[in-house]
Amino acid sequence: MTQKTRKIIGWVFTGLLALVFISSAFMKIKGGAQASQGAAALGISLDTLKLIAIVEILSISLFIIPRSGLLGTLLLAAYLGGAIATHLEHGQPVMFPIIIEIIVWITAVIRFPELSKRLATAQ
């Protein structure tokens, strides 16, 4: 795969992830009926839901910016790990957050060559 192709694929995946996280955050901030029902099912207040939305926006913003992309990757991985744990605790399906986390890591390995080098040489 050429460097140009790798860069294009990385940015396409980044755009898709940005769309997912930003739309999710705005639905939480907007606080419609679906967000209220989801929060109530998890035992989360609407204020806490808005704080979670801010964390989502901050994390994806750091992920998008190349200089802070690795930090964004770690924050998104931690956020999604929490989402998976919360879904498991409340008996909800976990496939969506798992798939999104896999896409985050694939995108990070494509976009940040230093990450793939470190993962390849991990002992």
Rank of each mutant, 00 (worst) to 15 (best):
S36M: 15
Q37F: 08
F26I: 14
Q37W: 10
A35V: 08
K28D: 08
I44G: 02
S45A: 03
G32V: 11
L46M: 14
A35W: 07
L46P: 00
S45E: 09
L49W: 05
S36Q: 15
S45V: 01
K28S: 05
L49D: 01
S24A: 09
G32H: 10
A39Q: 14
S24T: 01
I44T: 06
L51H: 03
I52P: 00
K28I: 01
D47Y: 13
M27K: 13
L42P: 08
A40F: 09
T48D: 13
A35Q: 02
K28F: 04
Q34L: 14
D47P: 07
K30I: 13
I52D: 01
A53C: 12
S24K: 01
Q34G: 06
I44N: 01
L49S: 02
I52T: 09
K28A: 08
K50V: 09
G31W: 01
Q34S: 12
A53L: 04
I54P: 00
G43F: 02
S23A: 15
A25W: 08
I29V: 15
G31M: 01
L51V: 03
L42K: 13
G38V: 03
K30A: 15
L46H: 03
K50P: 11
L46C: 01
I54L: 07
S36I: 11
G38S: 11
A53N: 11
A35L: 07
L51Q: 13
Q34N: 14
G32T: 03
I52V: 15
I29E: 07
A35F: 03
F26G: 10
A53T: 06
Q37E: 14
A33E: 14
I44H: 06
S45L: 01
A39C: 07
D47N: 15
A25L: 08
S24H: 08
F26P: 05
I52Q: 07
Q37M: 03
G31D: 00
D47L: 15
K50S: 10
I29G: 05
Q34I: 07
S45R: 06
A53E: 04
A39S: 13
G43V: 06
L49Y: 02
S23I: 11
A35E: 05
A33S: 15
A39W: 00
S45I: 00
K50Y: 03
G31N: 00
A53P: 03
G43I: 04
A40G: 08
S36T: 14
K50L: 06
Q34H: 15
I29Y: 04
Q37R: 13
